[in-house]
Design a binder for these strands. Structure first.
Lengths: 200, 200
DNA sequence: CCATTCACATAACAAGCGTTACGGTTATGT
DNA sequence: ACATAACCGTAACGCTTGTTATGTGAATGG
């Protein structure tokens, strides 16, 4: 029973949504053609039409992860330190959608670490993310809202902190509810803000 | 061709080592009965003798991860802040073995997040880890080497930081060589050490 | 010393996987 | 209007997976 009207773009979106639902439920390890097909109410024949091979499905899933992460509703950026804080808060699993996205993100690490090519791609991606954060840090420093110091180092530290907080919050959501996460991030930023009088 | 001398314990260790090698090479997603069997130079019959079902193999692999992480050669602990630093340094992938262990650790998160029971177990495990760190933090506070403040909060923050640093170092080992990791951790600790004069 | 249990190999099983071939509709272009 | 291509279901393929049944030689114990 093929589609009566060939709304191809809409069907493509349906496929993506089915992929996303499978990822949210089973993670990357459970991403299988038949799982996506039944989630979509279709068969594997449809999927092989859109994705010649499994690796293409996985690639699409990774694209989807990128794209939905990028398209997340961001809070008002502000300037200086406020922009840094906003950027970091945007990463944390503070909403249900952000939690789902982060859960998929973490589960993709198994696949990525097993494939050197994917691993390298991830390294570049995180490097770019650190660069963006570094610019925000540098801007905050110019405003005098952050003490001087290598902005790249500060950015790398902040990214580490947020990344680890994501993982912990995913495993223990009741121990790390949104207020707690915000609290911890603010602790981190407060410690960062304060200049360090003693020479090392 | 069964073993001539029934060195059962030794064989058990051989099995564990084969499991570990498979995990290091393929991650948790590649942990399969036949992979372990061929790595061991045996058949699946042996494995089903030791592990009635696959879940038992996975459980054993997780135990192995726990146990080898716990048995890692630790640096001299010291007291107060030095003990905190030592405990955090012990987590980072600063050696080849620690890197392998951490790689397996991260790859286990996909499996763990897909299974609610495992997920809860992990939450407890990380909770205990935070508790231990909290005690070290509290001890450092009593020595005056860390400013006052909720030790649980400080411990949670430190654990987040180190955890995220582990992930970043795994994906970009050349960008996060051991000296860089140590540097970043020391930055974090330095910011933590300094008391915060302004009331919020 | 012999029966029983243990410690495996061997081999097959059903289920699930990605992949492929093929057939029938529906749209598209000429 | 008709050939062609796109779209998608059906069905099967070969492979890998976990699991199970059966056999066999070594260890064990009464």
């Amino acid at each position: 029973m093929p589609r009566t009207k060939g709304d191809h773009e809409a069907r493509r979106r349906d496929v993506s949504e089915a992929v996303w639902r499978v990822l949210a439920a089973q993670g990357f390890g459970g991403l299988t053609l038949r799982a996506v097909a039944t989630e979509l109410g279709a068969t594997t024949g449809l999927l092989t039409h859109y994705f010649p091979a499994k690796r293409d499905l996985v690639a699409h899933a990774l694209d989807l992860l990128d794209q939905r992460t990028a398209a997340r509703p961001r809070r008002a950026a502000g300037t200086g330190l406020a922009a840094v804080r906003a950027a970091l808060l945007d990463i944390l699993p503070l909403t249900a959608e952000a939690t789902a996205s982060n859960r998929i993100w973490v589960s993709s690490w198994d696949t990525a670490l097993a494939d050197p090519a994917l691993s390298g791609e991830y390294a570049l991606k995180y490097g770019r993310s650190r660069d963006k954060l570094r610019e925000l840090v540098a801007a905050a420093q110019e405003l005098g809202e952050l003490p001087p110091g290598d902005p790249a180092r500060i950015a790398a530290g902040a990214q580490s902190f947020v990344l680890g907080l994501v993982v912990q919050a995913l495993f223990a959501p009741e121990a790390f509810p949104p207020p707690r996460q915000t609290e911890l991030l603010d602790d981190y930023l407060a410690a960062l803000v304060h200049p360090w009088p003693e020479s090392r």
